[in-house]
């Protein structure tokens, strides 16, 4: 009976209860996150915002099961992450989460295609007979179908970022965590990437992304603003932008510019 109410109300994918993260460095303890409590439900599309150093990446690392909380609880799909061992955490990262790092973190001297194949290589419960095909599709989705065999040092910053995004979504994760996925992209490409995220989100994938740009945050459904490790604003997006429409507008605008006689 509680099962049925849960499914309708939606058990949160992410539940943070008074989460703290303190970095114990030599002299000074850095309190990067100090008491964050939020629920994020399935199908949400959240922009995590805030000034530099406000604790966004720290939060993302915790959400991505890469780092552990100092205090508080993190329930992922109802599972207390702090009780999992290293293998179980690895499996969760592999199967449930797609992570786009702030610094891309691509394997050097390894082609775009192979970078994207990596998560499938470590998949334990699913076996992929079509790794190359799936990786190619993911790269095509982010507009890199023609750069499959390029190594990271032969890709621009924006292209590397898109490889990182392709890698995050190739395993069909339920949750995508992206730390400034549009940080290195021009506005048109940024909107295209937001289009990709919106499409994935429509398919039911929960997305949490960090961004500094207010207009990019407008493409999401919910904005959370942090300051000094605390959540200061948490509101739903009212005038949501849709990537497809915006791209259409851009196209019309550029055509209009071309029509102006010089």
């Amino acid at each position: 009976m509680s099962q049925s109410t849960n499914s309708t109300a939606g058990e949160p994918v992410i539940r943070l209860k008074d989460v703290h993260k303190t970095y114990f460095t030599g002299e000074l303890d850095v309190k990067a996150v100090q008491g964050v409590t939020i629920d994020i439900h399935k199908g949400e599309f959240v922009a995590l915002m805030g000034a530099s150093g406000s604790g966004k990446s720290t939060m993302m690392n915790i959400l991505g099961c890469l780092d552990r909380v100092t205090k508080g609880d993190y329930l992922l799909d109802g599972i207390d992450v702090s009780e999992l061992d290293r293998d179980e955490l690895a499996d969760i990262r592999n199967e449930k989460i797609g992570f786009v790092f702030q610094g891309f973190n691509l394997l050097a001297r390894t082609s775009a295609l192979e970078n994207v194949e990596l998560p499938m290589l470590y998949s334990r419960h699913k076996t992929y007979d079509d790794r190359e095909e799936k990786a190619t599709k993911a790269l095509e989705l982010v507009g890199l179908g023609n750069r499959l065999d390029h190594t990271p040092n032969r890709l621009s910053g924006g292209q590397q970022q898109r490889v990182a995004i392709a890698r995050a979504l190739v395993n069909d994760p339920a949750l995508i965590l992206a730390d400034e996925p549009t940080g290195n992209l021009d506005s048109k490409t940024s909107i295209e990437i937001m289009g990709v995220f919106q499409k994935l989100n429509e398919q039911g994938i929960t997305i949490v992304m960090v961004t500094h740009e207010l207009d990019i945050a407008q493409y999401t459904k919910r904005n959370i603003v942090m300051r000094d490790g605390r959540v200061v604003t948490d509101k739903l997006v009212t005038n949501r932008l849709m990537a497809e429409e915006e791209l259409q507008k851009l196209k019309v605008a550029s055509e209009a510019i071309q029509m102006i006689p010089s």
Binding site: D87, A90, F99, L106, Y122
Partner: peptide, 16 residues
Amino acid sequence: TREIGIRMALGARPRD
């Protein structure tokens, strides 16, 4: 070390 970190972040278990 960094490569190892990336592989682990993407789901490599310690034994992998």
